[in-house]
Write a protein that binds this DNA or RNA. Structure first.
Lengths: 342, 342
DNA sequence: AGATTTCTGAGGTACGTCAATCAGCGCGGA
DNA sequence: TCCGCGCTGATTGACGTACCTCAGAAATCT
């Protein structure tokens, strides 16, 4: 019932403490047969290393770097804040977190930044950048150097990253589609889809999921081609205005990406059609206020606190080479309406 | 930049290690002026006790007990499973968790069980039981004995408990109300509300929130009086059947409590009206399957994994007398439809 | 068989904290 | 002057693990 220690397995395996240590830490100098005997004892006694005592002994300091997009973005700001909060809390956890920002529009600059971080040999990286060949290569190099890498919010599916911390965007798009269809009701009309950029994989996947579900289940809705705002307030305003004017049958707007603040400003300036359903992504000050005031009907979100804590836990697990608790690291697709605002 | 240790604050305060230790652990034998000097050094250097090193040194074992309702209940089963999973993971480092079950219908038996647990002097309790004066008293006695107490899922607002781990049920009811109203659309008709028992505070609060929002925002809906199933399959089936037969204008069913399995079976047996909207609570095998098959339109849920991990973290924090990270312990009201099933 | 290499054991120090002991200080009262 | 008291320092041994050294045993090669 008591937790076995290295001493116990040394006794059980009939070897010395030093040998157990060598086996546990995969140090050389132990015969294969002896390794097996120790492993066996470990399994039999159910020994699990006390990683805190271990870190204490080796006075290890974990160094993690988060690579976030530069520029004004309320979601990234919230993420950064959550990260700082989490960092403060687990300051006691002997790990330091550094945040660097990169211009995501320049793949080479991003790759350079990642390479530069890699050369400081941190224990792990969490990166939130668009998918490009340059970035994939950079991730490969990091992994080759034995640095843990997790992707955050936006995945790099064909890269060497250890883990993706984020939601399934196709499911998120489908969720938005169902809510749109059900909130709109029986009316027939069109739905505007806006995003900051259709280059981003997450936007593409959301659109895909949204279209799938709307075409299958809500034939009364016509989904208009996606409009890109490129994070430009003026452009966003003009998209909204012209969509409202050009489509008298406009029933809903699905905002897949960033720039909700500008979308809402544009909508306030234009004559918002009666009963227009607006569904946006990510809980930010702008979308929160819009939910409270009824300007947005639902927000599809991923909890930033959960994101950063999960990223930190996974990085830690990867650098210690221990298993993660999958159920704890599954990021949920939150559906937020005014009534369940956290 | 490096984490200060007791040695550092001893040096900073110009006292010995022993004195620092006495101050930190509030042991007697230190002059007030010296205490102040040490405290000052702690603040200045930003010292935070390495709780793992501390526990290692004092080889403390935390003992926690979870008090759960007895009887067949898929939600409680899921909770128990999540608890076992969390306990198995290293999350529960040097803490053992015991689960006991109590017959929640008997307040005296519940109180007796809690008292019995208390006399074994564990470090903390997480309890999920209905609110009764007996239980409130029992909690008071536990607290008086210095045992940490958190309420789980169901709160005891006027008791001495340290913390409530669960959702705001009024908000959950409001959320269900909005979803019901919006999913039903413009049609006029009635909504059935069922629960296992209206004695339970959570059911009362959910009903309150549901009514609030429906009466304010959806005047086209009439909410029928709550029906209680008392966790009896036969009773539940008859409630459903007679509701469907007696109310030809039935547009929706809101299931606030347990027994969704029986509700759905009853609904399958009865002639389910076209377009009936069903909203239930808690993600269980029954509701999951019903979501997938379109028998339930939305589920209001609280993540069981999050619940138990939060309870464990809070208990740990309370027994160590350290602060909790509020944002991490806020249990979200999950809205789950088929598309964002985890 | 002897030489060499490979394994293994014994033991130590360290990490940050707790807890206990013992010694010593200054001060005031007897 | 001596005693007791309140406060403080110094020291020590845990806790579970990491990592190092050194000596010596065992296996392997020549």
């Amino acid at each position: 019932m008591v937790k076995p220690t290295v001493h116990d397995i040394a006794k059980e395996a009939g070897v010395s403490l030093a040998t157990v240590d060598r086996v546990l830490n995969a140090r050389p100098g132990v015969r294969e047969a002896t390794v097996a005997r120790v492993q066996d004892a470990v399994d039999r006694l159910g020994y699990v290393r006390d990683s805190y005592a271990a870190n204490l002994a080796r006075k290890r300091q974990y160094r993690y770097v988060f690579v976030l997009p530069v520029g004004p973005n309320q979601f990234v700001d919230a993420l950064r804040e959550a990260l700082i909060e989490a960092t403060g809390a687990q300051l006691a956890e002997r790990s330091s977190v550094k945040i660097i920002t990169v211009p995501t529009h320049d793949p080479h600059a991003v790759a350079r930044a990642i390479n530069a971080v890699g050369s400081t040999r941190p224990d792990g990286l969490a990166i939130m950048v668009p998918e490009t060949p340059q970035v994939r290569d950079a991730v490969g190099r990091l992994k080759a150097d034995g640095i843990a890498v997790v992707t955050l919010v936006a995945d790099l599916p064909n890269s060497a990253r250890d883990h993706f911390v984020g939601i399934n965007n196709r499911s998120a798009g489908r969720t938005a589609g169902v809510l749109m269809g059900r909130f709109v009701g029986r009316a027939t009309g069109s739905v505007l889809v806006v995003t900051h950029s259709l280059q981003a994989r997450d936007s593409i996947e959301r659109r895909l999921g949204f279209d799938e579900v709307v075409s299958q289940e809500f034939p009364n809705l016509v989904v208009l081609p996606s409009m890109e705002s490129y994070d430009d307030p003026v452009r966003m305003a003009s998209i909204v205005t012209s969509a409202v004017n050009a489509n008298p049958d406009l029933l809903g707007i699905y905002s897949m990406g960033t720039g909700n603040k500008f979308l809402l400003e544009g909508l306030r300036a234009a004559r918002r059609p009666e009963g227009l359903v607006v569904i946006a992504h990510e809980l930010t000050p702008a979308t929160r206020q819009a939910l409270e005031e009824g300007e947005v009907d639902a927000v599809i979100a991923q909890n930033v606190g959960h994101l950063v804590r999960s990223a930190l836990r996974v990085l830690r697990a990867k650098s210690d080479d221990v298993a993660i608790l999958a159920s704890q690291e599954r990021i949920r697709i939150d559906v937020i309406i005014r009534e369940n605002l956290p």
